[in-house]
């Protein structure tokens, strides 16, 4: 859980604030919960908006530490991580929130699942 406003992004990415509000979360477990509840349309919209900006977003993040303290930098990283995990659902899994023909993802325990970025 974060007390800072997740929609506060670096100026160049300020227009992505609604996506940040919908997807960006500090921990893998929280991002998983968002993913597991998302629809094909939402995955598509996230992908269509983010992919064209991904290069720029990663270029920006290259100048940030791996665990940024600055709120805008941290939110930009949370957004990138949310997309990192959401993209395959659109690109590979036909919009399904589950990996097709897979084990129940909720039974996988991530040691780092509650570690905040």
């Amino acid at each position: 859980m974060t007390s800072t406003d997740p929609t506060l992004l670096p100026a160049a990415f300020a227009d992505l604030a609604p996506l940040a509000a919908r997807w960006a979360r500090p921990t893998e477990n929280e991002r998983n919960a968002v993913r597991h509840a998302a629809t094909a349309g939402e995955f598509a919209a996230f992908h269509d908006a983010l992919l064209p900006r991904l290069d720029a977003l990663l270029t920006y993040l290259r100048d940030c530490p791996p665990r940024p303290e600055d709120p805008a930098q941290r939110n930009a990283l949370m957004l990138a991580c949310a997309y990192a995990e959401a993209a395959p659902h659109h690109e590979l899994y036909g919009g399904s929130s589950e990996v097709p023909f897979s084990f129940d993802a909720r039974r996988f325990v991530a040691d780092h699942g509650d570690e905040a970025l």
Binding site: Y60, C64, P66, L77
Partner: peptide, 12 residues
């Protein structure tokens, strides 16, 4: 990761 971009890529 040396920076946040590398970390996000590792997450992917």
């Amino acid at each position: 990761a040396a920076n946040a971009a590398e970390y996000a890529a590792q997450v992917h």
